[in-house]
Each structure stands twice: as structure tokens, then as C-alpha cells.
Design a protein around this nucleic acid. Sequence first.
DNA 1: CTGGGGAAGGGGCCC
DNA 2: AGGGCCCCTTCCCCA
Length: 499
Amino acid sequence: MANCMVFHTQITSIMEVLANAAVAEICKLVDDDYAVFRLEMSQSQKENTALRRKLQLLELKVARERVLGSRPSSVKILDRSRGMARGHLTGGHSSFVKPAGCNKWRDDQSITVDEGSGTLTKVVIESADAEAAGPRVKLEKAEGDEDPRLSRNIQTGAVGVSPIATEDSTTAPAPPRTQPSITEVSGMPNAVLKSETDKETLTVTHRLLHTGSDHGSDSERLGPLGCPPAPGLEYFPVFHQSQVHSRGDGDTLDTGGDDPSCSYSTEMDSGNMLLSLETQTDLSSGDWNRYRSSSVYSDGCLDKKREVIVVDEGDGDVPLTWNADQTQLGEGHSQGRDFIDYKESVETNPDVATHSPLHAFRDRDTMSTSMGSSDSHRRVLFDQLLNSKDQRAMAQEGGATSGSSKEKRFLCMFCNKGFSCLQKVEIHQRVHTGVKPFSCTQCHMSFAQAGNLKIHQRVHTGVKPFSCTQCHMHFSHSSSLKRHQRIHAGEKSFSCPPV
DNA sequence: CTGGGGAAGGGGCCC
DNA sequence: AGGGCCCCTTCCCCA
């Protein structure tokens, strides 16, 4: 019996030893695998960084070639306001910033694009306007020796500072610490705003983002962070909540925080996905339109989506029915919570005029005291949307629900303008979304209405079906003929009223 | 003064 | 009869 007990004890001890050995081996395997995993992650991240560096260099080269090719000595930027307003990217997406308050680039605004040894590029745009509204905007792309990040500083400084156009950033006077600045670490997968002080960044961001609206024209507006806004995206009404994918539950897989290999939360920031989209897309307007019309903004896709507010006639003049079969404009854009919020606000608050998605977002954003970078990005997009075409539409139509609500029971969800049928409001909402599903097959142009495309194609065909009966003139537009015939009729457009 | 795009309204046709 | 769709027209604006 005693022998049996001893044997049992020995067996138990042996089992414990074996179990401990097994645990140790398992732990070792896990550690090894984890190390391999981290190594692979870091390698992949390095590869991504290298690819991004190459991409940015290519973009810079393209921008430089365009600028230098068109203006070899004194580089000026063409007025792309119309192109921007019409939603066509015509150049590098992040290379040039149009000074606020200026409708056109002036001769005294210089742009220096010097890549030097290929490792340093500075783009300096100086506004000689002595007005306080004229910011000094400096885009700087500097590539460090080891640091793969490409930084871009947007500074708003005192006006009147002598222009800075130097190849060496060390010769440029360092901005005062108190000077507000925004540093976009564009070398990261998507732009990440780093602020010296959050308050200052918020202020400067707000100032930068409102420089265009202060002057009233949407064509003057800067894109986010000085980038020409992507068409369509410029007025993209769907904005998503940031999705942070790093786990914070503290288990062994929690690689967020001090483990850089898994700190990819910013990559998934959907607010910055817009920038990512710009970066990954050939930004020539043609390619952009191809992309837009083929993959995201295909007409067939769009026409199947219903994003309108339908006035329930049985409920008086209060629009209560949210008709949104799909609250996204294209695949690849998850349904935005802002739209959900808006839906809720519409359902709970009939005051749609002051609770449009834009107002709702703006109100909510204004309440935010710690606006993050993605919020800033979204805010500029919403401000662009609200302050430009939306306001123009509001001004033209006198605001919400103009006209008879019985006849115009389909309300635009952006400006609340009423339309008689669903298709009309869908077409109208393309004003806000920038969607132009009808692309010309012979050029880069695209149109929101099929009829306008048809008229446009007369440019290529040379067809001028409208002939003047009193002269040899022919016109491609009927309105042009009508306008021309006023000349024969001796009609004066502006005549002094009889005294 | 013309060229041309943007946007909206109206009417006809079809289901 | 009513709604959706398509096409055309018209006006406005800007380059």
C-alpha cells in the first residue's frame, strides 16, 4: 500500500514536470510565432512606407513637371477654380494651395518647386496681399534621412513676411512656437494631423477651412489641408465614424500602444480614406472621372439609390418620411453614422430646415471641444458643401420648401428644396454630391444630366443645329441662337427706364 | 459677342 | 389617373 502511495506520488510529480515542460514549450512556440509575426508585420510596414515614399516622390515629380513645363521661369498656378468647382482634378492633389481670398493666382505669388537631390521639396506660395485675410501658406515636403515620413506644414503667419522660397528648410526661419501650425504627417498611410497644441490647431484649422467661405465663392475654397478637394468627395455627404482597430482589452493580442507593428488605427480612419483615395488614384481628371463613373458613381448604381426627403402630404407641411433605401453613395463607403443621426433627427424633429445633415453635423461639431483630425477633415468637407452650392441653391430658392409643398413633395435632403418628382430631386442632389454619371467618351468631361452631355457632344461633332434665319450664324445652343437673335431684333438687354 | 457648362422646368410616352 | 423616365427647352453664368 505504501509502495502504491509512493508510486502515485512519483507519478504525480512526473506528470507535473511533464506538464510544466509542455507549458514551457507551448509558451516558447507562442513567443517564437509572435516574434515572427511581429517581424513580418514590421517588414510589411516598412514595405508600405517605402511604397508610399515612392508614390509621394512620383506625385511631386509629376507636379513639378507640370508646373515647370507650363511656366519654366516664374511658376504660377492656373486658376483651377472652375475645374475644382466642376469636380475635376487637374493636378497633383496635395501640392498646391490656393491662397484664400484670391480668386486667381497673381503674378506676385511665387511657387518654388525644387526637389533638389530628390530628398527635399518645398512648395511655397506667398500671398502678397497685405490684408490680414491673406495667409501665408507654405507647403513643405521634407524627407529626412531616416525618417520616412513626409511632412507638410501649413502655416498661417503674419502677412508681409518676406517670401520664403528656399531649398533648405534650415535656412527658413523657424516659426515661432506660439504660431499656430498644422503638421500633416502625410507619409503615414493616411494623413494624420499632429498638433502642437490642440487649441491652436483647432483655431488654425478653422481659419484655414473657412478662408474660402469668407469670400463667398465655392470655387475659391481650399480642399482639406490645402488639397484640392476631390470631386464628388468634395461634396460627399457620407462621413463615417473613425474605426479604431487596435484592441485595448489588455490581452496578449493587444498590440496597440507600445507595439508599433499593430498601431494601424489611423490607417482605418475613414475620414482619411478620402485622402487615401486621392493618393491611390491617378489624379488626372480623366482617370478620376473614369474611376468615379465606373466604380463608385455608376449611374445604374446611383439611380437605384433613394436619398430624398418625401413630404408626407397627410401630415401637413412637415416632412417626416425618410426615404433612404440606401444612405450611401457608392460602394466602399460604409453607411455613415451621420446619416443615421440625421435620419433620427428628421424623425424626431420635424424642423428639417435647421436639421439637415450639414447643420446637424456642424452643430455637433461646433459642440466638440476636442476636434480630431478626421473631424477637421470632415468639417471642411461639410463646410464646403454647406457654404457653396448649398447656399447658392438656398439663395436661389429662398430656402426650405419654397413653392407649393403639395406639388413639390420631394425635398432635397441637403437644401430642402422641393421638387415635383423623385427623379428631379435625385438630379438636383447631384449638385450637392458632385456626382456626374454621364461621361463624355471623347473627353474627360462628365455631367450630372444626360441632356447636358448630349449638348456637350456637339463640341466634338461640330454640329450646330440652331441657325440664324437672318444671318449665316449657327449655334450649338438654342439659347445662344436666341441670344444672338436679340441683336437682329435690336433688343437691348439693359435699357434705361423712361424718366 | 460667342462658346459652353450648370441647373431646373416642362411635356410626352409608357407602365 | 398617377408616377417614372426621358428628352428638350430655357435661363443663368462664366470664360
